[in-house]
Write a protein that binds this DNA or RNA. Sequence first.
DNA 1: CGTGCAGTTGAGCAAATTCAACGCTTGTGG
DNA 2: CCACAAGCGTTGAATTTGCTCAACTGCACG
Lengths: 223, 223
Amino acid sequence: MLSLATTPVHSATLGSQLYSPWPSDALSDFLRSAGKLVTYERDEAIYHEGDASHYLFRVQNGAVRICKFRIEGQRQIDAFYLPGDYFGFDMQQQCRFTAEATTTSTLLVADVASFLSPGLKAADFVSAVWKTALRDLHRSQDHSLLLGRNAHVRVLAFLHDIATRLKRTSTIELPMSRQDIADYLGLTIETVSRTLSDLVRDGAIDLPSSRSIAFRSPVKGVQ
Amino acid sequence: MLSLATTPVHSATLGSQLYSPWPSDALSDFLRSAGKLVTYERDEAIYHEGDASHYLFRVQNGAVRICKFRIEGQRQIDAFYLPGDYFGFDMQQQCRFTAEATTTSTLLVADVASFLSPGLKAADFVSAVWKTALRDLHRSQDHSLLLGRNAHVRVLAFLHDIATRLKRTSTIELPMSRQDIADYLGLTIETVSRTLSDLVRDGAIDLPSSRSIAFRSPVKGVQ
DNA sequence: CGTGCAGTTGAGCAAATTCAACGCTTGTGG
DNA sequence: CCACAAGCGTTGAATTTGCTCAACTGCACG
């Protein structure tokens, strides 16, 4: 059994106190030992919607999109995973999304079986797994909120989000295409392009090349 | 220590096998014994964004919206919780949203402290808590995808979602206002109203009263 | 019976999409 | 090395979708 906190604690601590506390990169350490590095080319599928889910992942470099395709052919991107992000922990029997590399990417890939192999104290990872689930939930909630805003706000918030996650404050190299951004923001590629041009015109950003964004004012979140 | 599966299992089972399996309503049983019933009137706040999060909830009847308010005053609804739904488990230090009753609602409310009180085997609930988190994540993902569709599809999918969650196939009594629906779907109240009128005209639904929806064809999900 | 609130409907408008053209870069084959 | 095609991104014009503003209806409640 797991030991229990004896003082009244916050629900916040469900993930850190309630479950045995481990250094935050225990999961990374495990994946590094149990998994192997796999490189995916741009647009290469990592798994498909409906596949049985057998693997756990960590992005080492590059970027991954998880998306769905509608009968009419349109693609909707639910999330991007960037270097340092874990994914594959939230799945049940089947993959709910298709995962693809948006650019040449290296992933650490481990079989779920190894994660649950005898002798491994799976409970030690509960805290870390909980963290990834909560992080995904919060990102998804933020994404929903963002989709209620206009194109200008969506694009700017997207850029800021990517910058924050890449730990950059002044310039970023976008690891995805305009089409990827459009499908994530629920816009068309033309609207994304026009909005970026507007942002340059307004002096919010510079666009030294189509994949690099330079912020004129320091990066901060959108209300 | 928790016992471990000795056969290779699915990541799907992280929530059911990895952690000690409990009847799915163990959480409900616990909340029933540790919590108390509280009734909230329509539009009454249950907690506010930024509050310290101290409680866990289960909707007994009525409905709850979790939402954010923008500086300009607009409200965005992230999710509705309907009878049988748990919430409050996903929170960290602070409440990320404001929770309000959309209609007179009764909730089972328990202090987090009681959940973590000495002698209670919190690990027994990990599976159930994990389930609520995954359910919230999947709903949020579906919500994001929905916001990429047009008004017609959004409204119809919303009605179908509510019907499914209320376990109804032919008619539902909406537990929220047009404004609530609009703020959830990222539309205006007028567009929701017009779309409902269109759906009646198209023969998809009947509207015996503004809060009750009768489906002409059996309820099924939207791709 | 009047007032207020929720919902509906209409007319004009604005934002984003669609359709189309064009420029730039990259890769390929002569 | 150049010519050319393909892919990606940008820009323009017309169209569509959903929004804004406004009026109006129905209903509940005093």
